[in-house]
């Protein structure tokens, strides 16, 4: 499980750093420069707690961190933080949550070599999905697509999911 552990530490660092940078860059131009160290400390503390929690096999930390990241992304978007950085942060938090759950599922066989192919496949698939999701969001943001279009996209995705599920049930 070494590969997974390295990956989840990396994603934690990315998520925390992206949020911190988004907050700091916003604060820097809004008259809160003297309190920047407080923000940096807050993010560092949250990231550290999440890391310690998972290293002690407290797997609920992954879910808590995803909620925390989602709330910050929502709040940050409304305040006016950089949307790109928040998106990176959300994707990294999603990956962190996913890997925490993978660690939890494979915990009974932690250290076993039989898990290596599964880990590699999982990480590969995760990178692919995250990259796809991030790019889709980025494209949606960069080309300034209208809200109605995004809603239509979501509806199309939901429809696809429904059809996929229906096909599976029929099979």
């Amino acid at each position: 499980m070494k590969l997974t552990r390295i990956a989840w530490i990396a994603f934690l660092v990315i998520a925390v750093t992206a949020q911190a940078v988004a907050a700091v860059t916003f604060s820097a131009g809004s008259g809160f420069e003297d309190r920047l160290w407080l923000l940096a400390f807050l993010y560092l503390a949250v990231g550290g707690l999440a890391g310690i929690g998972l290293s002690r096999y407290q797997f609920w930390v992954g879910t808590a961190f995803l909620w925390w990241a989602a709330i910050w992304v929502a709040a940050g978007t409304l305040i006016g933080f950089s949307a790109g950085l928040l998106l990176i942060s959300l994707c990294a938090a999603l990956a962190f949550w996913d890997l925490a759950r993978l660690l939890q599922r494979t915990f009974p066989l932690a250290g076993s070599q039989q898990l290596l192919p599964l880990e590699k496949r999982h990480l590969g698939f995760l990178f692919m999905v995250l990259a796809g999701g991030f790019l889709a969001s980025l494209v949606a943001l960069m080309v300034k697509i209208q809200l109605n279009f995004i809603l239509a996209l979501i509806l199309a995705l939901v429809l696809l999911l429904g059809i996929g599920q229906l096909v599976r049930m029929l099979r």
Binding site: L78, V129, Q146, I150, I154
Partner: peptide
């Protein structure tokens, strides 16, 4: 805010 709706996209792709 379209950014918020866009933030749902990575989760949906996942």
């Amino acid at each position: 805010r379209s950014e918020l709706v866009a933030a749902a996209l990575p989760l949906m792709v996942y």
